[in-house]
Design a protein around this nucleic acid. Structure first.
Lengths: 214, 214
DNA sequence: GTCAATCTGTGAAAAATTTAACATATGGTT
DNA sequence: AACCATATGTTAAATTTTTCACAGATTGAC
């Protein structure tokens, strides 16, 4: 009889994880929801509510043990287990992801990098050679792939995403600027940079209006 | 007496804009909230409520004129005016942003690219030479810069962000993996890729649980 | 020109999320 | 050992967000 935890809560968890990691690096051993609240600019109540969705990690009169809470949130987010990632699209963005060392510390390992452009065959990123798309199917069948990151142009993204799903891949990290049409059971996380930029643009205009009013 | 429009609504607007753009490309002239609802997998009611925050763009018995609505949302998002962007950090991610031609169509123009690493001085992206950080201040004073995109490592991100704000830049597109500490009036849009990846990771675990239960 | 079908804009209801409030447990101090 | 300050977990209230429902406007068919 587990209650579903809302995505609103899940979206906040990585941020808690990040701040706790920073506290850990700074040698802080314990923290109260109030202190964390001041640091993160959210209400202490929200922090306690969020955490209590997963269990009581704190102690009355003491607060939270930073290391313990950090580890627990890590488990919740599935960081305790390895995730193998392939990146489809070896342009700058694909290479940026492949280069990002920090991901590996969290168990996210880039095991393959694919592109249609033969020019990329020359390139290898952190020891991973760029493979051509016609090798994709064989690769996926030979290796466990948990996540496919789509960093290619949107034109054929939907087609390739469906192909990947048919090959058994259950999760897509989508950077292509479109909404993928995929079966229910596939987990999709979108990173729409242009959407983000437009939100920024809106808020710039809003801020200007507020300023001019004064 | 304007009511504040919630960020929840604003986050959805670029998605409407994107879908309307696709419809426009497909030559669709009009669309009802119901049709759009089916396409976008959100309720028709939400679409109508969202749009009505900004005004009545539709017509009873007819629906919405795609071109008109597209343009209106563009205006709302501030896409009708040019935004000059500088990118701090000329690594793969910075280059990816600088290379992304589509942004320019929406009025987002990358006018400068900066890095601390002298090795990048050789590189230029779409005609933009990478400048060294010591030229940043002069550049910002000579050019109107609306947005600074931070694509450098987190270590000095906060310091540089504050420097940029002191130079008069009012908006930060932050890709560094930390929460910036900036004055109230600065508009910040975060793109935390590792947060996104962790959310994906959580949802993968959740999906596995659901599947195994059956 | 009339009428049925369509579809928006909007007020109200329902649901979800956030914040407040507090009972109760723990730690540290004297 | 007793007591006060601290701080969680949790229930309840407040707020926000989403969905429902429908009056009224418009279109298109005949």
């Amino acid at each position: 009889m587990e209650k579903e935890i809302s995505q609103a809560v899940i979206r906040r968890m990585p941020r808690y994880y990040r701040h706790l990691g920073e506290l850990l690096d700074d040698g802080v051993e314990r923290i109260s929801s109030n202190e964390l609240s001041a640091r993160m600019r959210v209400t202490a109540s929200q922090i306690r509510q969020d955490l209590n969705n997963f269990g009581g990690f704190g102690q009355q009169g003491y607060g939270y043990n930073v290391k313990y809470l950090y580890d627990e949130i890590g488990k919740i987010l599935g960081i305790n287990q390895q995730h193998n990632i392939i990146v489809i699209g070896a342009g700058n963005l694909g290479q940026a992801l492949a280069n990002y060392v920090k991901f590996e510390k969290r168990g996210f390992v880039i095991i393959g990098l694919f592109d249609v452009n033969p020019a990329f065959q020359e390139i290898s990123v952190r020891g991973i050679k760029v493979r051509m798309m016609d090798q994709l199917e064989a690769f996926v069948k030979e290796n466990r792939v948990d996540i496919a990151a789509l960093t290619m142009p949107k034109e054929n993204a939907d087609e390739i995403a469906n192909m990947l799903v048919n090959l058994g891949i259950g999760a897509i990290w989508n950077f292509a600027h479109l909404d993928l049409e995929l079966p229910e059971h596939v987990v999709v996380e979108n990173v729409h940079l242009s959407d983000s930029l437009m939100q920024l643009s809106y808020n710039i205009a809003k801020q200007r209006k507020q300023r001019d009013k004064k």
